[in-house]
Amino acid sequence: MSPRRSYDQYCSAARALDAVGDRWTLLIVRELLAGPRRYTDLHADLPGVSTDVLASRLKDMERDGLTTRRRMPPPGAVYVYELTGRGRALLPVLQALGEWGAPLLADRRATDAVRAHWFALPLLRSLEGLGEGLVQVCLDEGEFHVRLGDTDGPVYGEGPAPGEPDARLLLDTGTCAELGRGGLTVRDAIRDGRIVVQGEAPLAKSLRTP
């Protein structure tokens, strides 16, 4: 394992960057906020990262107390990586960083990769204060789900919601990006028909209420 690189500054921001300032580290956190992931899954959803760099970052993150590695029970019997409590505490950091960077998404480049679940964290921020429950989100690129309210576990996940969601949101990628940039609110998007809300649970009914 390579020695830790450090700014050698007695400053909390510098110490934080010692741990998470390397390229790919925060994006690995973004992926693991969805819950335990296999190495192959991480590599698939981090296009552009080499296998050597990903392995090195995961070792560094485990050393720094951000992640753990464990073996799943049979029949899977594969190793997965997951965030520790300290790693999960980076959620507001990623959300703040995403909010700062949202205006840079105005133009999508031809070389840009995209995964549906990359919109989960900015959408989660847009839904704050609108209720609690499990929300399934359907975009052009695929589906993901988010958990509104206090949770000690994953705040989002790839694919359909496990079990019956409290609400389903149908919207296009452009609307989701605009929500992330702050140029549109969820309530306004629902009112204008840019988000279709499905479901009969209290959360879905509340979202449809003007």
Rank of each mutant, 00 (worst) to 15 (best):
R88I: 07
R88G: 08
A89H: 10
A89V: 07
L90W: 02
L91P: 06
L91R: 07
P92M: 13
P92Q: 10
P92E: 15
P92A: 10
V93L: 15
V93D: 10
V93S: 09
V93N: 02
L94K: 02
L94W: 05
L94R: 04
L94N: 00
Q95I: 15
Q95W: 01
A96E: 12
A96R: 01
A96T: 08
A96Q: 09
L97A: 13
G98I: 04
G98A: 06
G98Q: 11
G98D: 15
G98T: 05
E99T: 14
E99D: 11
E99I: 09
E99P: 04
W100M: 15
W100S: 09
A102H: 07
A102Q: 11
P103H: 10
P103R: 08
L104I: 00
L104Q: 11
L105T: 14
L105V: 08
A106K: 09
A106M: 13
D107E: 15
D107M: 11
R108H: 03
R109G: 14
R109L: 15
R109W: 12
A110V: 14
A110T: 13
A110I: 10
A110W: 12
T111I: 13
T111Q: 13
T111N: 11
T111K: 08
T111A: 14
D112S: 09
A113R: 08
A113I: 06
A113P: 13
A113V: 08
R115G: 08
R115I: 12
R115M: 14
A116I: 01
A116L: 02
A116D: 01
A116C: 06
A116N: 01
A116G: 04
H117S: 12
H117W: 11
H117A: 10
H117C: 03
W118A: 01
W118M: 02
W118R: 02
W118N: 06
F119G: 03
F119R: 02
F119M: 13
F119K: 06
F119L: 12
A120Q: 00
A120V: 02
A120M: 06
L121W: 06
L121K: 00
L121T: 03
L121S: 03
L121A: 03
P122G: 03
P122L: 01
P122A: 01
P122I: 04
P122E: 05
